[in-house]
């Protein structure tokens, strides 16, 4: 992530500098019209984005609290384990590193179900609950485990049965059949999810985990 972060920042500012350095006509030809210097826009954007990020996180607080509370009740009532047991054959194949009866499995199932039903605001808290349980199994606390990367990849490509927001936008803009996108969307997300799964599995060998630090040797005093 270090490299990605630096590359994004440097590339953005470099493009901004070039854009301002080019004569007006040429800049417009390459980048399209713009009504203010690129660097000034970047200045404003960096401050706005930082403020938005904090607002977004704090805005999540209520929903996170709600779903983490519900999740805890469902866990103690045995509902999560029940759901996880039903899907155990699939889960064990997807996440071989996670013990079949670990609470992470239940949270993963809940997250995927919420994604499938298009309940985005429930899916994130449940996904974070799953991350928490996956972190319990992770020996390197600052490094993503294979299971975490796979879970993330499946979340960024999850299948949605009803893309509700898109359908609403299409209706608003006068589509004659606003829901005709449902089938291609399901098929495309299924392909995306499959590819993400394979990519996560293949890439994990190219990003090997560092060996754990050797346990401290006992004793070792003066001999």
């Amino acid at each position: 992530m270090n490299r990605v972060f630096v590359a994004l920042l440097v590339a953005a500012v470099a493009v901004g500098l070039v854009r301002d350095a080019l004569p007006g006509g040429l800049a417009e030809q390459v980048f399209g019209p713009s009504n203010e210097p690129a660097l000034r826009a970047l200045t404003q954007k960096s401050l706005d984005a930082a403020a938005d990020a904090a607002k977004l996180a704090l805005g999540l607080t209520g929903v996170l609290a709600l779903w983490m509370g519900v999740m805890r009740v469902a866990e103690q009532a045995g509902l999560v384990a029940l759901l996880a047991r039903a899907l155990r054959p699939v889960l064990v194949r997807l996440f071989p590193e996670v013990p079949a009866d670990h609470p992470a499995m239940g949270a993963i199932v809940m997250n995927m179900s919420a994604n499938l039903l298009g309940l985005g605001n429930a899916a994130t808290p449940l996904g974070l609950e799953a991350m928490k349980h996956l972190q319990e199994l992770n020996p390197r606390k600052d490094t993503a485990s294979n299971a975490m990367v796979l879970f993330l990849a499946l979340n960024t490509t999850h299948i949605t049965l009803i893309p509700a927001r898109t359908i609403a936008l299409r209706l608003e803009n006068g589509a004659s059949d606003a829901t005709n996108i449902v089938l291609p969307t399901i098929l495309a997300t299924a392909c995306g999810m499959t590819v993400a799964f394979v990519a996560a599995r293949l890439l994990q060998r190219r990003f090997p985990l560092e060996p754990l630090a050797a346990p401290p040797v006992d004793g070792g005093g003066a001999t």
Partner: peptide, 10 residues
Amino acid sequence: SVGIKRIRHG
């Protein structure tokens, strides 16, 4: 949310 900084192939 769990403090992961090294994302590997994520």
